[in-house]
């Protein structure tokens, strides 16, 4: 039984490491800004990173900004996870076609990470001078909780709402977590049964 469980765990780990698509969710608000602000604005979105096709599929919806949008991009990587600020990683001043001059809106696109135009030039330079270096750095920052999506507005030049990218557990990870929980519960039940007898 132990051998079977170990095999399942090992297989799950390998699937997790080799998976091409890494999914992140993002919740943007003023409380997550640095410095914190009292904006009632809110946004949510997803970022799907494919390390085989070298693409970043991004999507966001936002509303309730006190100002109107002036810029938006993903920053990486902060010194510590889920805190602080970092330089701009993606296209400046904003993603192509991002809605500017609005207090609510939605946006989605897929960035080709092999193109220099998908990046802030300085971010490429800071990471070996190649788009692949920039991609590796951003991929690591996202995985480590050190990348955030910021939306700047006319009332908050440094950003009205932002949110760190949070990994979305893969179905295999959820299944493994469930399996682990079941295993712990089963072990506890078995110990209790032995103690009673």
């Amino acid at each position: 039984m132990k051998k079977i469980l170990l095999s399942v765990l090992t297989m799950g780990s390998l699937m997790s490491v080799q998976g091409a698509l890494v999914q992140y969710s993002v919740t943007l608000d003023g409380l997550s800004e640095s410095p914190v602000n009292a904006s009632p604005g809110f946004g949510s979105g997803t970022v799907n990173y494919d390390n085989v096709t070298h693409s970043l599929q991004i999507q966001v919806s936002f509303s309730g900004l006190t100002g109107t949008t002036t810029a938006s991009h993903i920053h990486a990587g902060t010194a510590a996870p889920f805190a602080g600020t970092a330089g701009v990683a993606t296209t400046t001043p904003y993603f192509a076609g991002f809605p500017i001059g609005v207090s609510s809106g939605s946006y989605s696109t897929t960035l080709d990470l092999t193109l220099a135009s998908s990046w802030n030039g300085a971010y490429i330079t800071a990471n070996g001078g190649t788009t692949s270096g920039a991609e590796t750095a951003l991929g690591t920052a996202m995985a480590d909780g050190k990348a955030y999506w910021n939306i700047h507005s006319t009332t908050f030049g440094g950003g009205e709402i932002r949110g760190f990218l949070v990994p979305v557990p893969e179905p295999s990870t959820i299944a493994l977590a469930g399996l682990g929980t079941l295993g712990i519960a089963g072990s506890a039940w078995n110990r209790r049964r032995i103690n009673k007898s």
Binding site: T70, A71, T154, G157, G158
Partner: peptide, 14 residues
């Protein structure tokens, strides 16, 4: 004055 903040910063005045 206009708030810019601590390093690293990125601010977009109008």
């Amino acid at each position: 004055t206009f708030y810019v903040g601590a390093f690293p910063f990125d601010t977009h005045p109008v």
